[in-house]
Amino acid sequence: MKKYLICIILSFLTTSIALARSTGCKEGNCENGFGKWVYTDKTTYEGEWVQTQKEGNGTETWPNGYIYKGEFKNSEWSGQGILTFPDGSTYDGEWTNGFMNGEGKFTWSDGKEKIGIWKNGKLQE
């Protein structure tokens, strides 16, 4: 009986660990269409896919509170998008290759704003 109980507990733990680390397409079409992909760290992407690449509009959400809503090209943030930080600050503007590039507005959680041209994630003064 004791061995049977240990086997049940071990199989439950193994199954729980496997499910916690499961990754992949959870809804829709993540090859060519609209789908939701969940990564092992629980980051999710929900949006448009073209040939298994994030392409078009979508939302990427991290467990630590970061959220990006906007355009993707070749699975990178490119085009118009809004990045929301865990503290409530936001950057709303242009993106290229995953970096703030072009016109944009950074708004701190206290409401202060900085508008300008960004290059590789840095405001050009």
Score class of each variant (00 low, 15 high):
33 G>P: 04
23 T>Y: 12
9 I>M: 12
113 E>A: 10
29 N>R: 08
41 D>F: 04
95 W>S: 02
22 S>W: 03
31 E>P: 00
46 E>W: 05
113 E>D: 09
121 G>M: 05
59 T>V: 11
8 I>L: 14
118 W>A: 06
28 G>M: 11
43 T>N: 02
5 L>Y: 12
118 W>D: 06
31 E>H: 01
100 M>T: 08
31 E>S: 02
85 F>I: 02
101 N>W: 05
3 K>H: 15
104 G>A: 09
88 G>A: 13
72 F>A: 00
25 C>K: 08
43 T>Q: 11
71 E>P: 07
60 E>V: 01
98 G>E: 04
122 K>Y: 11
8 I>E: 01
96 T>K: 14
88 G>V: 13
23 T>P: 00
32 N>T: 10
5 L>I: 13
96 T>L: 11
89 S>R: 06
30 C>T: 07
14 T>E: 02
125 E>C: 06
82 I>E: 14
77 W>T: 00
6 I>G: 02
80 Q>Y: 08
96 T>F: 09
71 E>V: 03
54 K>T: 04
120 N>H: 03
100 M>Y: 14
104 G>M: 07
10 L>G: 08
82 I>W: 09
119 K>Q: 13
26 K>V: 14
76 E>S: 13
74 N>D: 13
83 L>G: 05
97 N>K: 14
36 K>M: 05
96 T>C: 01
18 A>F: 15
81 G>E: 06
87 D>W: 10
56 G>V: 03
102 G>Q: 05
87 D>P: 11
113 E>I: 15
38 V>E: 06
27 E>P: 09
111 G>T: 13
57 N>D: 02
35 G>C: 10
97 N>T: 10
85 F>Y: 15
71 E>Y: 08
66 Y>R: 08
63 P>M: 08
88 G>K: 14
118 W>M: 05
46 E>R: 11
13 L>V: 15
8 I>P: 00
43 T>K: 12
5 L>N: 06
17 I>V: 12
86 P>F: 08
34 F>W: 03
9 I>E: 02
24 G>M: 10
122 K>G: 02
76 E>C: 08
89 S>D: 04
117 I>K: 12
111 G>L: 12
29 N>F: 05
46 E>I: 09
52 T>S: 15
86 P>E: 08
40 T>D: 05
82 I>K: 15
120 N>F: 04
54 K>D: 02
34 F>E: 04
90 T>Y: 10
87 D>C: 05
87 D>H: 08
108 W>I: 00
77 W>G: 00
36 K>C: 01
76 E>I: 04
60 E>K: 09
80 Q>I: 03
38 V>D: 01
53 Q>P: 00
11 S>T: 15
55 E>M: 06
85 F>L: 10
66 Y>P: 04
77 W>D: 00
36 K>E: 03
75 S>N: 11
81 G>W: 07
73 K>P: 00
1 M>A: 10
122 K>R: 07
45 Y>W: 03
52 T>I: 07
35 G>T: 11
72 F>W: 13
61 T>Q: 14
24 G>V: 11
67 I>R: 14
2 K>T: 13
110 D>R: 01
116 G>A: 07
68 Y>N: 03
86 P>T: 07
